[in-house]
Design a binder for these strands. Structure first.
Lengths: 153, 153
DNA sequence: ACTTACTCTACTTTGTTAATAGGATAACTT
DNA sequence: AAGTTATCCTATTAACAAAGTAGAGTAAGT
């Protein structure tokens, strides 16, 4: 399971992607609209800023906004930053490889082969899914729902 | 990442799958061969027994052995038992669904759609991978390695 | 100067992970 | 029946991470 911190980070980024033409957005606005504790969100946004995902302005008219175009921010990058490696075992992580100390021979570890497969598929999905892609999916899904409703009515 | 507990459980089950024609195996043997703290492993095996994956006999000649045929024990089932749901968000878990309290509308949550996809692919791999399948994969990989060596020599 | 809003440090609470210690119980052997 | 073997069970622990909270500091606009 993703931690709440990671989920909050993703929600906030999506919010800011949707608001990208409105200028800086207040932490308070994101917090209240997305149901995130404000103080906790402050820390999260700061972390995202340090990574370059976000920028901010202080004082009146200030707030947070995307630091890079939304199509260049992938869920994979965000999850890795907040949660750590996608892999289920250290020995199959691309970004944070570590040997399993109990393992005799990595090359013939069955568990490793399976978990590598899981990691690769997860990475394939998350690394190819940008904030823009997510919004597009939402729009498609909403459109499909509306069509169904039209048909029913 | 999987917890060590889960990894130990999987290693122990694989060990017992390989030893399935040798009768009961001592906790101490598994612990020393797989590099697992013995007392910790005791608790893990007990848990696996309660779930029906294992059976045991006490006293001399006793030990642990598989409670079901190895082809019927999937990595998915073991991971779910030891680690909890495969899903990255509670709202996409098949086995332990729970609403995300901050979420406005589950049907149009972009995050949910993506994470459902990740869950489904993970489940597809792990639920179709039995202890026997893992061993078969290992054998295949070893055979391939040997062929390459033969070729090189 | 005043207000606004992000920034930073420190702390708390709660829960989980990864064990360890020690005795109880069951089964087999002699 | 006594002794040995090996699992079973309860309790405790240290270390760490998750999910916040409190409060003062700093930069920017009016």
């Amino acid at each position: 399971m993703l931690s709440k911190k990671t989920k909050y980070a993703l929600k906030a980024l999506q919010y800011l992607a949707r608001a990208k033409d409105r200028g800086p957005v207040l932490i308070a606005e994101i917090a209240s609209n997305e149901g995130i504790p404000q103080k906790f969100l402050e820390a999260i946004l700061l972390e995202l800023k340090k990574e370059g995902f976000l920028e901010s302005r202080k004082g009146k008219g200030g707030g947070y906004f995307l630091g890079r175009p939304p199509e260049s921010i992938t869920l994979g990058a965000v999850v890795r930053k907040m949660e750590g490696p996608l892999a289920l075992l250290p020995c199959v992580s691309q970004t944070a490889y570590r040997r399993c100390d109990e393992c005799h021979d990595e090359r013939t570890c069955g568990l490793r082969m399976v978990m590598k497969d899981v990691r690769d598929r997860t990475a394939e999905i998350l690394d190819n899914m940008s904030l823009t892609d997510v919004e597009d999916q939402v729009r498609e899904a909403s459109a499909a729902r509306t069509e169904i409703l039209d048909y029913v009515i």
